[in-house]
């Protein structure tokens, strides 16, 4: 898991003649350099934590080529980083897009969270199986989708019992974050190129000064008047997202 950042895209080229190829976005959870396995202990500075439920809504996913032409891949996707063992964690979740025009693309764009127009809709507007049809990712009181969930258990006293339950749910228009990653993505005909995106939860649960969240003092965030901790969490995406191809 070293050298996560950078590198060229690996492509398996198969033969064919159509001018379209496939593209996979492969999301994986990380804790520092390790694939993040749910319910396994990780040290967040001096607190031992186990993650239990990690997921988010990803929207407006597109790739852009040199001529600034973009190809929309999806309006909305649901990503759950729910690997319960090493193999599952290393596999992550794959979002597959077929029939992408061949060529060299230089940017990947996406938003974690839901853009305002879609955030004005509700799960009842969709099919029950759509990402935005998920009622567990909608919160009436906020009038918003829940953009991401980071839930787990912490052992704050060091007695080996993970009895402090924490959850950070992000949501409401101000907390969506959009990203443009400069990355060469080559789509070749009849082949699949894969881009791996990692989300490092060790980076996510940190204050601006780099210290770990005080999970004991603020284990949960349902008070709409206390948005500091979840605002910090979404601001941390920029450094928590790591790319490898």
């Amino acid at each position: 898991m070293k050298n996560i950042i950078l590198l060229a895209i690996g492509i398996i080229v198969l033969s064919s003649c159509k001018q379209e190829g496939d593209f996979n976005l492969n999301f994986k959870g990380l804790f520092k350099d390790d694939a993040l396995v749910l319910n396994q202990a990780y040290e967040l500075d001096d607190i031992s934590v186990k993650f239990e439920n990690l997921g988010f809504l990803l929207t407006d996913i597109s790739i852009v080529n040199d001529d600034n032409e973009s190809v929309e891949l999806a309006d909305a996707e649901f990503v759950a980083l729910n690997g319960v063992d090493q193999a599952g964690a290393e596999a992550g979740q794959v979002l597959s897009y077929n029939n992408i025009p061949t060529g060299t693309y230089t940017k990947l764009k996406f938003t974690i969270g839901v853009p305002e127009d879609l955030n004005a809709t509700v799960p009842g507007d969709y099919a029950i199986t759509d990402p935005l049809g998920r009622s567990d990712y909608y919160w009436e009181a906020w009038g918003s989708y829940i953009f991401s969930k980071t839930e787990g258990n912490a052992d704050v006293s060091g007695d080996g019992v993970y009895d402090l339950k924490f959850f950070y749910h992000t949501g409401s228009d101000a907390l969506k974050r959009s990203f443009e990653l400069d990355r060469e993505i080559v789509i070749d005909k009849n082949s699949t190129s894969t881009l791996e995106l990692f989300l490092d939860y060790n980076e996510l649960l940190r204050n601006a000064d780099g210290t770990a969240f005080d999970i004991e003092a603020s284990p949960r965030n349902h008070d709409p008047n206390k948005l500091e901790i979840v605002t910090q969490l979404v601001d941390n995406y920029a450094r928590a997202i790591k790319v490898r191809s």
Partner: peptide, 26 residues
């Protein structure tokens, strides 16, 4: 039920029994 009023306790029910179907099926 829906944690909709800061003046009353959050009963959290809606997180698992959300509308309109009153379940999240998790």
């Amino acid at each position: 039920f829906f944690d909709a009023d800061p003046l009353t306790p959050d009963a959290e029910c809606g997180h698992c029994h959300n509308g309109p179907l009153l379940t999240t099926q998790q």
